[in-house]
Design a protein around this nucleic acid. Structure first.
Lengths: 220, 220
DNA sequence: CGCCGCATTGACGTTCGTCAAGTCTAGTGG
DNA sequence: CCACTAGACTTGACGAACGTCAATGCGGCG
């Protein structure tokens, strides 16, 4: 997680990361309204984060996997403003935020790291806003699949195959679509020979075409 | 901008904030791809930030006004990933980010402040994702108007009147709607007696009803 | 005074949501 | 081990919401 630095510093960082917590499938790591104390680094498993309105609608704001950090939303008000739910049995490192702040005052590499993580999340969300605000269903789903497979590939998994840990409804919530639209669009991709889909198992057959869907060639 | 602390510290913070920059209407404060060096605190004027795809579509990711900080997107990669455009003549404080990091190692209040600003932006974007992903046009526009007037009110302006600094197209881009839909929805609100609209001048007549639009009473 | 960018409005089309029926799979208990 | 069930998924028919295209109006600035 942190970058190359000295031994004494490394020890102190490892101390922060010492506490582990297991979260079973469908359990929450934290919920909106709960007191914020720590950030969590995912060791294993996949999570979704979601925000909910008073009238019960909710929006999945992201899917997080090993190596990613969740809980940043809680810093502003010392309360979490979204739920984090495990999509499969998972384990996280509990990193007390006051310890992080304390140590990042001394270790500039850690300070930079924290800033970059938060900035990365802001940039990621810009991308989601672009997706939700100006893409059609096919484009959204293609972007989603490519993003997932790319992140999995970076973790040593296949570059063409993936197992979705979330339901069609959760994908739909993330992409601003109804589950039927997700299902139909997947079926369409299969018909067109872009994918093989077997329940939650997806194999990408034509990555180039999916990529073209996301970013149509500039028509100029 | 910073919170209550000591004199020597305050001096050093003011040093960071010393450099000003004027930006004329339609000019950019920074553009996607430019090297990131500084955060900017808006002193006067309103900005929009937007991301652009290779094929030319773009998405307004936010409107920022006095007291708000822009440029956080640049921290991850030392390059900006969005454009910041002044919607009217504006002035900002240029705050070199390495100076901010340096000083926030010594002044814990500043460190906390920086963290909270970034976290607040993440939470704000969650709200936008909710809006884009699960609200209908009327709800989006009502939410937008209430948000704008509330922020203006917090700055000493009217709680019921506002002047939009952006075009219908820019509002539409932010809300994931076409400009015609924005225009039509505004007209509908006028017909229903919720608003008075005169070009970019808007007066809110029935805030309660707008609020109900955003958050329909739990039907339980 | 005239132009140009912005806004409004109407008619029509497309995309996606809604509702409903039916299938498949995994997990459970007999 | 197998039948049963519940949750997840698929597919179709239909409709609503929003986008598209086009015509027109309005206001500010040179």
């Amino acid at each position: 997680m942190p970058v190359g630095l000295e031994k004494a510093e490394l020890d102190r960082i490892e101390e922060i990361v010492a506490v582990r917590r297991k979260v079973k499938r469908k359990d929450t790591l934290f919920r909106s309204g709960e007191r914020f104390t720590s950030l969590y680094a995912i060791r294993t498993g996949v999570f979704k984060t979601q925000v909910t309105t008073e009238d019960g609608r909710d929006q999945v704001t992201g899917f997080q996997m090993a190596g990613e950090i969740i809980g940043l939303d809680g810093i502003v008000n010392n309360r979490h403003s979204c739920d984090a739910v495990a999509l499969e049995d998972a384990e996280v490192c509990v990193m007390p935020f006051d310890r992080i702040e304390e140590l990042s005052r001394e270790v500039t590499a850690l300070q930079r790291h924290v800033h970059r993580i938060m900035s990365r999340e802001i940039v990621r969300e810009h991308g989601v806003m672009l997706l939700l605000g100006s893409m059609r269903a096919e484009e959204r789903l293609a972007a989603f699949l490519l993003n997932m497979v790319q992140r999995l590939h970076a973790r040593g998994f296949s570059a063409t195959e993936l197992v979705l840990r979330m339901t069609r409804e959760e994908i739909g919530s993330y992409l601003g679509l109804k589950l039927e639209t997700v299902s139909r669009t997947l079926s369409k991709f299969v018909e067109e020979g872009l994918l093989e889909v077997n329940q939650r198992h997806v194999r990408i057959l034509d990555e180039a075409e999916l990529q073209r869907l996301v970013n149509p060639p500039a028509c100029a």
